[in-house]
C-alpha cells in the first residue's frame, strides 16, 4: 500500500506560498491588462468613423497632424478612451478602498457623499449661471472631496468607527440631495444644465479637462497600490489592527480621503457613474480574491476595461445617436450584478 505524503517540509512551506502568490498575481494582472488593452483598442478603432489597426498605429507614431485619421485619433478617440480608462480605474479603486475600509460590500463612493457632494456643487454652479466646463469640473471635484471631509469629520467624533462613517455618509448625502433639489426648484435651468453631469458620460471630454484629473487618478492609484497592507490589516478588525500598531482612525480617514480624491477626480470629467465603484470591486474580488495586493491593481484594470466597453457600446448601439454611458452602465451592470448575487455561494456577497 502506498502512503501519500501530505506534509510539507519547512522549505516547501516557503516556496509554495511565495511562488503561488507571485504566479497568481502575475496571471491576474496580465489578464486584467489584456482586457483593458483590448477594450481600449476597440474603443479607439470602432465608432462612427472606423479606424483600422494600421491607421491607428500610423496615427500614433506620426503624432497629431492634419489628416482626418490623425485628428480623430488624437483629439476625439484618444482623450475619450483615456477618460474611460482613467474613470474606470479611479472609480474601481475608490470603491474597492471604501468597501475594504468599511468592511461593507454595499459601500461605494456614493456612500461617503461623493456623488451627492459633486451633484450639489454642479447644480449650484449651474444655478449661479456658471456653465464653463472648467468651473463645472472644479465644482464637482471640490463638492465630492468636501462632502467626504464632512462625513469623515462627523465620524471622527466617534473615533471613526465603520458604522458611523456609513451612517454619517447617509445623513450628509440626504442633506446634500435636499440642497440640490432646493437649487433646482428655485432655478429650473440648473436641472437641465446639470443633466449630463448627473447621468454621467464622456461625450464632452477633452484633453485639457482631463489632464489635472488624470494626474490625481494616476498618482492616487499608485499610492493606493502601496497601501495594500494597511487595507488588509484594517480588515482584520479594529482591535487587531490597533494591536498590530496601526493608528486605525488615522489610516481609515486617510484611506477614505484618498478614495474621495480618486472618485472626485473621476466625477469631475465623467459625471456621476455610480455603478462602477460598486460592481467592479465585486467582480474583481470574485475573480481575484480579497487580498488587496492582488485586488487593487486588478480592480483598476477591470474598471478601466469595463467603462471603456460600456462607453463603446453606448456609442455603437443606437449609432449615430449616443446613449449616455451612465445609463447603459446601469442597464448592463444591474442585471449582471443580480446574476452575480444569485450565483454567489449561499447567496451572500
Amino acid at each position: 500500500m502506498k502512503k501519500k505524503d501530505i506534509s510539507l517540509t519547512e522549505k516547501e512551506v516557503k516556496l509554495k506560498s511565495e511562488a503561488a502568490d507571485r504566479k497568481g498575481k502575475a496571471l491576474l494582472f496580465l489578464s486584467g491588462a489584456l482586457f483593458a488593452l483590448l477594450a481600449a483598442v476597440l474603443s479607439i478603432c470602432l465608432g462612427a468613423s472606423g479606424m483600422s489597426l494600421g491607421k491607428l498605429w500610423s496615427a500614433l507614431i506620426s503624432g497629431p497632424g492634419p489628416s482626418a485619421a490623425q485628428r480623430i485619433f488624437w483629439f476625439v478617440r484618444l482623450p475619450r478612451t483615456g477618460a474611460c480608462l482613467l474613470a474606470g480605474a479611479g472609480l474601481a479603486v475608490s470603491g474597492t478602498i471604501i468597501q475594504k475600509v468599511l468592511s461593507n460590500s454595499l459601500a461605494s463612493p456614493g456612500i461617503i457623499g461623493v456623488n451627492a457632494g459633486a451633484g450639489f456643487a454642479v447644480a449650484l454652479c449651474c444655478g449661479l449661471g456658471i456653465f464653463t466646463s472648467w468651473a463645472i469640473a472644479g465644482a464637482a471635484f471640490a463638492g465630492a472631496v468636501l462632502s467626504t471631509f464632512l462625513v469623515v469629520s462627523v465620524a471622527r467624533k466617534s473615533h471613526a468607527s465603520k458604522t458611523t462613517v456609513v451612517l454619517g455618509g447617509v445623513a450628509v448625502t440626504a442633506c446634500l440631495n435636499a440642497m440640490t433639489e432646493t437649487v433646482i426648484t428655485f432655478v429650473p435651468d440648473a436641472a437641465l444644465s446639470s443633466r449630463d453631469f448627473r447621468v454621467g458620460g464622456f461625450s464632452a471630454v477633452n484633453q485639457a479637462r482631463l489632464l489635472p484629473a488624470a494626474i490625481i487618478i494616476i498618482a492616487g492609484v499608485i499610492l493606493a497600490c502601496t497601501l495594500t497592507n494597511e487595507l488588509d490589516v484594517l480588515s482584520l478588525g479594529d482591535d487587531t489592527a490597533k494591536s498590530l500598531g496601526m493608528r486605525v482612525s488615522l489610516v481609515r480617514n486617510g484611506m477614505l480621503t484618498l478614495a474621495a480624491l480618486l472618485a472626485g477626480a473621476c466625477v469631475s470629467f465623467a459625471g456621476i457613474l455610480g455603478f462602477v465603484g460598486l460592481i467592479v470591486p465585486h467582480i474583481a474580488r470574485r475573480i481575484g480574491g480579497s487580498e488587496s495586493g492582488r485586488l487593487l491593481p486588478f480592480a483598476a484594470l477591470l474598471g478601466a476595461g469595463f467603462v471603456s466597453v460600456c462607453d463603446l457600446l453606448s456609442r455603437m448601439i443606437f449609432a449615430p445617436y449616443e446613449l449616455p454611458t451612465g445609463i447603459l452602465m446601469s442597464f448592463l451592470g444591474g442585471p449582471f450584478f443580480i446574476w452575480l448575487l444569485r450565483n454567489r455561494k449561499g447567496g451572500s456577497v
Binding site: S235, L236, R285, S290, E291
Partner: peptide, 14 residues
C-alpha cells in the same frame, strides 16, 4: 482578541 474576523486571505498572508 476574543472576537475574530475571518478575512478572505490565506493563513500565510495573515
Amino acid at each position: 482578541s476574543q472576537s475574530r474576523n475571518v478575512p478572505d486571505i490565506t493563513v500565510y498572508n495573515m
